[in-house]
Design a protein around this nucleic acid. Sequence first.
DNA 1: AATCGAAGCAACCGCATCATT
DNA 2: GAATGATGCGGTTGCTTCGAT
Length: 269
Amino acid sequence: MGRSPCCEKAHTNKGAWTKEEDDRLIAYIKAHGEGCWRSLPKAAGLLRCGKSCRLRWINYLRPDLKRGNFTEEEDELIIKLHSLLGNKWSLIAARLPGRTDNEIKNYWNTHIKRKLLNRGVDPVTHRPLNEVASHPDASTTTTTTTTTTIKTISFSSPTPNLTQEEVFDLKDEKVNQQAQDQQREIWPDLNLELRISPPLPENPERLKTWARICFTCSFGIKSGQDCNCINNASECSSSSSSNDSSVGYDFLGLRTNAGLDYRGLEMNR
DNA sequence: AATCGAAGCAACCGCATCATT
DNA sequence: GAATGATGCGGTTGCTTCGAT
């Protein structure tokens, strides 16, 4: 497939953005909204590439950005998410409100990597360094970071919309179990039963209800029209909330006290 | 005060993916 | 199904800042 240049390079500015350029971009997006990045520069009177405008807006000008130092909680969350997702910075950023993928990526490379090394943990595999050194796969993990990391995750149910890379080789159950055991040693509070639905309830009575919830309901997007499972609305709504309605677990098995928003969680790469 | 190297971070680039024709 | 356009992602680069000497 041929690729056309994203912009006319001869007449575009590069490098750091000026205050005036920022103001123009902000004003334009406030008036017209995000999108149509290719045509935006011309419409906004900017001598910039559309990609450059998009990056500038997403990483620095968006009003909902948090800025400032990362907290200890954010550090730990990033480490946990990276152990599960690998270098999927956009997915990790989706779990940290106000943080961008670029910001997290930079922070990872400059701070967290070092932090993990000081703890004696390999930042690529999240395994103890001495173990990584003696592990037969150690050499390959560095070249296929994402694939290898993702392979330590198991899926307990069929997983639609996942690429081949992301789907664990179910034939290798034994290795998978070992990987989970290792992960539990590092993160004892982390539920590694990754699934695209609420976690399996331990209570047998609730399990009966849980097993009859359709995919649509499990994502919390049920409507009378869309739902094709055998449950009625009350069962679905009750099953998706726990005794403490403000606390739950997202699909990564992470405890959350906010409403689940799966829209920002893409697994299509 | 000057120099130099390391660290931090903003921005760019190439590629992948999805949507549209 | 192929071609093309638009957007998003992750890796990398290069500039700036900071601290040590």
